[in-house]
Lab assay of single mutants.
Amino acid sequence: MIIKINGKYYKIKKIEKNPNGKYTITTENGKKYEFKNVKIFSEEELK
């Protein structure tokens, strides 16, 4: 799965839903981001 952050695309390693309704997304390079609204892309959609 792929996520778009600030115009760049990252591969997703893990998605966790937090009790506060936000999502914590861990990218393949180990960085964590927290979002309220998340749009996930499949690799097929990006081709």
Rank of each mutant, 00 (worst) to 15 (best):
M1T: 06
M1G: 08
M1Q: 07
M1S: 07
M1Y: 14
M1P: 05
I2D: 02
I2S: 09
I2F: 15
I2K: 06
I2N: 05
I2E: 04
I2H: 12
I3L: 08
I3Q: 00
I3S: 01
I3K: 01
I3F: 04
I3H: 01
I3G: 02
K4V: 14
K4A: 10
K4C: 15
K4F: 13
I5R: 02
I5F: 05
I5P: 00
I5C: 08
I5T: 01
I5Y: 06
I5N: 01
I5H: 04
N6W: 12
N6R: 12
N6M: 10
N6F: 13
N6S: 09
N6C: 14
N6T: 03
N6Y: 11
N6L: 10
G7Y: 02
G7C: 09
G7R: 04
G7P: 00
G7A: 03
G7I: 02
G7N: 10
G7T: 03
K8D: 04
K8L: 11
K8A: 09
K8H: 10
K8Q: 11
K8W: 07
K8F: 09
K8M: 12
K8N: 07
Y9V: 06
Y9H: 04
Y9Q: 04
Y9L: 08
Y9T: 05
Y10E: 05
Y10V: 10
Y10I: 09
Y10N: 02
Y10R: 04
K11Q: 06
K11S: 05
K11V: 08
K11A: 06
K11I: 09
K11N: 06
K11L: 07
K11E: 03
K11F: 07
I12G: 00
I12D: 00
I12W: 01
I12L: 04
I12E: 00
I12M: 02
I12Q: 00
K13F: 11
K13T: 11
K13Q: 12
K13R: 11
K13H: 10
K13N: 08
K13D: 06
K13S: 11
K13W: 10
K14L: 12
K14A: 13
K14Y: 10
K14Q: 13
K14T: 14
K14G: 09
K14E: 10
I15Q: 01
I15Y: 03
I15C: 11
I15P: 00
I15V: 09
I15N: 00
E16D: 06
E16R: 06
E16H: 05
E16W: 07
E16I: 09
E16Y: 07
K17R: 12
K17Y: 10
K17H: 08
N18D: 09
N18Q: 12
N18R: 07
N18G: 14
N18M: 14
P19V: 12
P19Y: 07
P19M: 11
P19I: 11
P19K: 11
P19T: 14
P19A: 12
N20I: 03
N20E: 10
N20D: 11
N20T: 06
N20W: 05
G21D: 03
G21T: 01
G21A: 02
K22E: 10
K22N: 14
K22D: 09
K22G: 14
K22Q: 11
K22R: 14
K22F: 14
Y23G: 00
Y23F: 14
Y23Q: 02
Y23L: 09
Y23E: 00
Y23T: 05
Y23M: 06
Y23D: 01
T24C: 07
T24G: 02
T24H: 04
T24R: 05
T24K: 04
T24E: 08
T24D: 04
I25F: 04
I25A: 02
I25W: 01
I25C: 02
T26V: 10
T26H: 07
T26E: 10
T26P: 00
T26G: 00
T26S: 02
T26L: 07
T26C: 02
T26F: 10
T26Q: 03
T26D: 01
T27P: 00
T27N: 01
T27R: 01
T27W: 05
T27S: 03
E28P: 05
E28R: 07
E28Y: 13
E28V: 14
E28S: 12
E28L: 15
E28Q: 12
N29M: 06
N29G: 14
N29R: 05
N29T: 10
G30I: 00
G30D: 06
G30T: 00
G30Y: 01
K31E: 13
K31H: 11
K31N: 10
K31D: 12
K31P: 03
K32C: 11
K32E: 12
K32V: 15
K32F: 06
K32A: 04
K32M: 13
K32G: 02
Y33H: 04
Y33T: 01
Y33S: 01
Y33D: 00
Y33I: 06
Y33P: 00
E34M: 10
E34H: 11
E34K: 07
E34P: 02
E34T: 15
E34R: 08
F35D: 01
F35C: 15
F35L: 13
F35N: 02
K36S: 13
K36D: 15
K36P: 09
K36M: 11
K36T: 14
K36Y: 13
K36W: 15
N37A: 09
N37Q: 10
N37T: 14
N37M: 07
N37L: 07
N37Y: 15
N37R: 10
V38D: 05
V38P: 15
V38C: 15
V38S: 04
V38W: 03
K39Y: 11
K39Q: 13
K39L: 14
K39E: 15
K39H: 12
K39R: 13
K39N: 09
K39C: 15
I40F: 12
I40M: 09
I40S: 04
I40R: 03
I40K: 04
I40A: 05
F41N: 03
F41S: 05
F41D: 04
F41H: 06
F41Q: 05
F41G: 04
F41R: 05
S42H: 10
S42C: 15
S42T: 13
S42I: 11
S42G: 08
S42M: 12
S42K: 07
E43P: 08
E43H: 04
E43T: 03
E43G: 03
E43Y: 06
E44F: 02
E44H: 10
E44S: 10
E44P: 09
E44L: 10
E44R: 03
E45C: 15
E45A: 09
E45Y: 05
E45W: 05
E45I: 12
L46Q: 08
L46T: 09
L46P: 09
L46G: 07
L46W: 08
L46D: 07
L46H: 08
L46C: 15
K47M: 10
K47D: 12
K47T: 12
K47S: 12
K47P: 09
K47C: 15
